[in-house]
Each structure stands twice: as structure tokens, then as C-alpha cells.
């Protein structure tokens, strides 16, 4: 599905995740974050950069791994993205929603 965010046309899947990471930029990230009720702070960006990096390296993302990354602990991860940390931060980061149950 094609839609317009910040005057840019991007394609999204049915859950609102970008299907092409090359269309992602920081303005889009801010816009998606606003839609989920989050104002991005430097701490959010630390996590977003980390999950994008893991995605580039094709390392599967789990909340446990993020908690062990040294970037953020699980408690803060939930505070930064209260409505489901992993699914929210990957959506903002423009990468696919992780499929793990853990």
C-alpha cells in the first residue's frame, strides 16, 4: 500500500511497516513515532540505531537480546516504547516487525 508521509511517498504493509528500508529517513521516523504517541529523544535514537544495525547484520531481534546489548535494559526499553517496545521501535526504524514470541 502506498501512502504519503512528510510529502514522501512510501510503501507500507498492512500493519504500517515500511516495506522498503531505502524509503526511510529521520523525518519519516519522527512522523511514525508521533502517530504512536512518542516524541523521539536521543535515547530513542540509540535504540533505533541499534535495531537498524542488527537488522543490517541479519541478527534476529528479541527483547532479551536488546536487553543484553548494553544499549538499553529491558525496563528502560519498555519505558521508551510503552506500547510494545520491539514492534514499536522496529516500525519507527523502518525495518520489518520481528516474528519471535520471546
Amino acid at each position: 500500500m502506498l501512502t504519503t508521509i512528510s510529502n514522501k511517498t512510501v510503501s507500507l504493509n498492512e500493519e504500517g511497516y515500511l516495506t522498503d528500508f531505502s524509503q526511510w529517513d529521520k523525518t519519516i521516523a519522527h512522523e511514525i513515532a508521533q502517530q504512536t504517541g512518542i516524541d523521539l529523544t536521543p535515547r530513542h535514537w540509540d535504540v533505533i540505531n541499534y535495531v537498524q544495525d542488527q537488522h543490517t547484520k541479519e541478527i534476529p531481534l528479541t527483547i532479551r537480546n536488546v536487553g543484553k546489548s548494553g544499549v538499553v535494559d529491558i525496563k528502560e526499553f519498555y519505558q521508551l516504547f510503552p506500547a510494545g517496545p520491539l514492534k514499536t521501535c522496529t516500525k519507527i526504524a523502518g525495518i520489518p516487525k520481528p516474528v519471535s514470541c520471546i
Binding site: I5, S6, E15, G16, E31, T36
Partner: peptide, 10 residues
């Protein structure tokens, strides 16, 4: 320009 696609319509 913003859209509401990320919320309910999604």
C-alpha cells in the same frame, strides 16, 4: 502532510 494510516484504518 500527514495521514492517519498508522492508527485505526491500518
Amino acid at each position: 502532510e500527514t495521514t492517519t494510516v498508522f492508527t485505526s484504518k491500518q
